[in-house]
């Protein structure tokens, strides 16, 4: 089968690519664009490690073909913080609250959190747990992650950065 030419807008950068039509978005992000911050934990849509935001919505990038993301705006973990040393408030909260152990689930968790807070700047604990239940973590038991989300929600509301 012939390759398909697509344009991916990732973290504000435009990439023109010719990809095999069966390749998933996560494979193209990792292998072709070297954006390895997006992780693969299962490739069956069950773990959330590969979560990215497409036009603002959280998506399991292992369940989406790269061609389906043609011309869409994709945000990966690499695009979340602006400067070299600067962390996004969500990342900062994850660091400070001890929400990161092995870190393999972290990029997906952070992006799921971003999506949640974009939709709902003041979530309850139950809403946070529900929103993150598509993201598996085997290390933390989720408590510090939930705490981090609670803390950053408060902070972002106070800073008026709820976007």
């Amino acid at each position: 089968m012939d390759k398909v030419c697509i344009t991916l807008n990732v973290n504000g950068d435009r990439y023109e690519l010719a990809v095999d039509p069966w390749r998933t978005l996560v494979e193209v992000l990792r292998d072709d664009l070297n954006l390895t911050g997006t992780k693969i934990g299962c490739q069956t849509g069950d773990c959330g490690a590969c979560t990215v935001l497409i036009d603002g919505k959280s998506v399991a990038s292992c369940m989406m073909l790269a061609v389906a993301a043609d011309n869409k705006n994709i945000a990966t973990i690499e695009g979340l913080s602006t400067g070299q040393d600067e962390l996004h408030p969500i990342q900062e909260a994850f660091v400070e609250q001890g929400a990161i152990q092995c870190g393999y689930c972290t990029p997906g968790m952070v992006l799921s959190t971003k999506y949640l807070l974009d939709q709902n700047p003041d979530p309850t604990e139950t809403e946070i747990r529900q929103a993150l239940s598509g993201n598996l973590c085997r290390c933390t038991g989720y408590h510090r992650i939930v705490k981090a989300v609670e803390a950053v929600a408060v902070k972002m509301r106070a800073d008026g950065k709820g976007e």
Partner: peptide, 23 residues
């Protein structure tokens, strides 16, 4: 002291390289 992990920022930003990330 509850010092945050040394490796938390690099993991939070997706820059931590796991074996499968290397080429």
């Amino acid at each position: 002291q509850s010092i945050p992990r040394i490796d938390a920022p690099i993991k939070a930003t997706g820059k931590a390289r796991y074996t499968g990330d290397m080429k």
